[in-house]
Simulated assay, not measured.
Amino acid sequence: MKEIISTDDAPAAVGAYSQATATDDLVFTAGQIPLTPDGDMLDGAAIDVQTEQALENLEAVLTEAGVGMDDVLKVTVYLEDIDDFEAMNTTYESFFETEPPARSAVGVDELPKGAGVEIEAIAAK
């Protein structure tokens, strides 16, 4: 059975989607962008700051689902500029210091609300 995950500790969905959905075994998050829970978009900030906010949002959603960053199995990172990979990766590493999950990083033309990064995850319950 599908469970809808929602928390005020991450930005509200800006469209027809849930912050995350879960089954008995897995949690699937929506992509998290550098939007604060208060609605401030950090699109003008450096990519490391944007990455940190996106990962803080991701962590808040996972916490609401009853799991943590250590439970993440797979992450997909979308970068508006693939040249930002190294700066994103430095910040990303601080959230997954041991046994990091599998990850894909993809360069894209555009992200919602002018974001430089969007991050989604699948976690084990």
Rank of each mutant, 00 (worst) to 15 (best):
V61C: 09
T29W: 03
K2V: 14
A46Q: 10
A10Q: 01
F85L: 12
E97H: 09
E56Y: 04
K113C: 08
D9F: 09
D38E: 15
D84N: 06
E110Y: 07
A105G: 04
M41P: 05
N89I: 01
L62Q: 02
S104Y: 14
D71G: 10
S18F: 06
V61E: 10
K74I: 09
P101C: 07
V14P: 09
P37R: 11
A124Q: 15
G107A: 05
V49Q: 11
D43I: 11
V108P: 11
G44I: 01
Y92P: 06
A30W: 00
F28R: 11
R103N: 13
E118N: 13
V27W: 12
K113I: 09
L58N: 01
Y78V: 00
G114W: 06
S18G: 07
G39N: 06
Q53A: 04
Y17K: 10
P101Y: 05
A65F: 05
V77K: 08
I119R: 07
E118R: 04
E56I: 10
N57T: 01
F96L: 05
A45G: 03
V49M: 06
G66I: 01
I33T: 13
T90R: 09
E110R: 09
V49E: 12
M41Q: 14
A22Q: 07
T21V: 15
F96P: 02
T21L: 14
M1N: 08
A30G: 03
D9G: 03
G114S: 13
S104C: 06
T21G: 15
M88A: 07
T36N: 00
D24C: 04
L58R: 00
L58V: 01
E118K: 07
D109G: 13
A54L: 02
A46V: 07
D24P: 01
V75I: 15
Q50V: 02
M69H: 13
E93N: 05
P101N: 06
A16H: 13
V67G: 10
F28I: 10
E64Q: 03
V108Y: 03
E59D: 12
I5Q: 08
V77Q: 13
E86L: 13
A30P: 02
E86T: 14
L55G: 07
E59V: 04
E3I: 13
D81A: 03
T7W: 05
E120G: 12
S104G: 11
S94H: 07
D40H: 05
